[in-house]
C-alpha cells in the first residue's frame, strides 16, 4: 500500500508538472518578446546595487531608459566615470563630461567623549525614532549615533566609530546619498573632491549654548571670518559656512578655529592630486597674503623710525 501510494504520488505529480512544463515551453517560444540585447549588456555594466541614485527604480529600469536614449549615461553615481565610459562605448554615444565624484562626510564632531548626554533613551534604537523625542545627547544638532546611515549604506562604507560617530570609508563611498537621506538630523553631506576644508559641526545654537552641550562644536565666535574679505567663510545663523568656490581663506580658518570644528578633510580617494593642488593653492595664497602684510608692517615701522 505504502509503496503504491508513493508511486502514484510521484507519477501523478510528475505527470502534471511535465504537462505544464511542456505547455510553458511552447508558450515561451510562441510569446517571446524581442528585447534589445543592449539592455542586458547595460545591466551587466551597472553596479547592480539598485540604490536609486539615478532616479530610477533600480538598475534594470535605468538600463531600459538608457537604451531608449532618454537619460544621460552619467546618472549612475556608484558606477562613476568608469561605468559611464563603458556605457558610452556600448551605446555608441558621446562620452559625457567628467562626473564630479562625491563622497559623504559626517558634519558632527560631538562623539561620546565630547558631547554632553543629558537624557537616557531606552526606546527603539534607530536615529529616526530617537530623533522624535531628542535622543540622548543634549545638542539637538548632534549625531544621535544609532547608525541609521550605516544601515542605509548599500556599500558597507559606513561603520560606527569607537567614539559613537559614524565613520565613512571614503574608498568605498560612492556618493549615492542614501545616508544623507537616512539621517534625520541632516548632518551628513555630499562633498566634492576639490573641497579641502569642511566645518565638522551642524549646530546653529549660540556659542554659550554650544559650550554647555559639547566641547567640539561651532561656538559661532566668528574668528574664521575675521580678516577675510574674500567671503570664503561666513557666519550664517550661528554656524560657519565654507564657500568652496572661493580661494584662500578656508585653510586659514581651519588654523584659527578654537574648537577645531573647521578641519582640513582627508582627500577623496583617486583624487589626491587635485586635492593636494587645491590645498597647496590655498596655502600659497595665504602665505602670500601674510608676506604682504608683514611687508606692509615693516614698511610702516621703517616709516615711523624715520
Amino acid at each position: 500500500m505504502g509503496i503504491t501510494v508513493l508511486f502514484i504520488s510521484i507519477v501523478s505529480m510528475g505527470g502534471v508538472g511535465l504537462v505544464l512544463a511542456i505547455i510553458l515551453a511552447i508558450a515561451d517560444k510562441k510569446l517571446a518578446v524581442e528585447e534589445d540585447p543592449r539592455v542586458t549588456k547595460a545591466l551587466e555594466l551597472l553596479p547592480g546595487a539598485n540604490c536609486g541614485a539615478c532616479g530610477f527604480a533600480g538598475c534594470n529600469a535605468y538600463a531600459n531608459a538608457l537604451v531608449e536614449g532618454k537619460v544621460s549615461i552619467s546618472a549612475c553615481k556608484p558606477g562613476g566615470n568608469e561605468v559611464s565610459r563603458k556605457l558610452a562605448e556600448l551605446l555608441g554615444v558621446e562620452e559625457a563630461e567628467e562626473m564630479s565624484p562625491k563622497v559623504a562626510r559626517v558634519f558632527c564632531s560631538g562623539g561620546l567623549a565630547e558631547a554632553v548626554r543629558s537624557r537616557v533613551y531606552t526606546g527603539v534604537e534607530t536615529c529616526a525614532a530617537a530623533h522624535l523625542i531628542g535622543g540622548e545627547k543634549a545638542c539637538v544638532y548632534s549625531c544621535i549615533g544609532y547608525g541609521d546611515c550605516v544601515f542605509a549604506c548599500q556599500f558597507d562604507a559606513i561603520c560606527m566609530g569607537e567614539n559613537g560617530l559614524p565613520e565613512v570609508d571614503l574608498e568605498r563611498c560612492t556618493g549615492c546619498g542614501e545616508c544623507v537621506k537616512a539621517c534625520p538630523r541632516h548632518i551628513i553631506g555630499l562633498t566634492g573632491y576639490e573641497e579641502v576644508v569642511h566645518v565638522y559641526c551642524s549646530s546653529h545654537d549660540k556659542g554659550a549654548v554650544v559650550r554647555k552641550v559639547c566641547s567640539a562644536g561651532c561656538v559661532a565666535c566668528g574668528l574664521c571670518e575675521k580678516d577675510d574679505e574674500t567671503g570664503a567663510v561666513t557666519m550664517k545663523d550661528g554656524l560657519s559656512v565654507v564657500d568652496h568656490g572661493v580661494d584662500k581663506a578656508p585653510v586659514l580658518a581651519a588654523k584659527r578655529c578654537p574648537t577645531k570644528v573647521i578641519r582640513i578633510s582627508s582627500p577623496t580617494p583617486g583624487y589626491e592630486d587635485v586635492f593636494k593642488k587645491a590645498k597647496e593653492k590655498l596655502e600659497a595664497a595665504i602665505a602670500q597674503e601674510e608676506a604682504a602684510k608683514a611687508a606692509a608692517k615693516a614698511a610702516k615701522k621703517s616709516k615711523e623710525t624715520e
Binding site: S12, M13, L20, L24
Partner: peptide, 24 residues
C-alpha cells in the same frame, strides 16, 4: 487515485504555471 494529501502541491504547481503563462 485516493491521494488527497497532494492537494496543496498540485494546486500550487498549476497556479505557478498559469501565472507564468499570464505573465508571458
Amino acid at each position: 487515485f485516493n491521494v488527497p494529501f497532494l492537494e496543496y502541491v498540485s494546486f500550487i504547481i498549476v497556479i505557478a504555471a498559469l501565472v507564468q503563462f499570464v505573465e508571458m
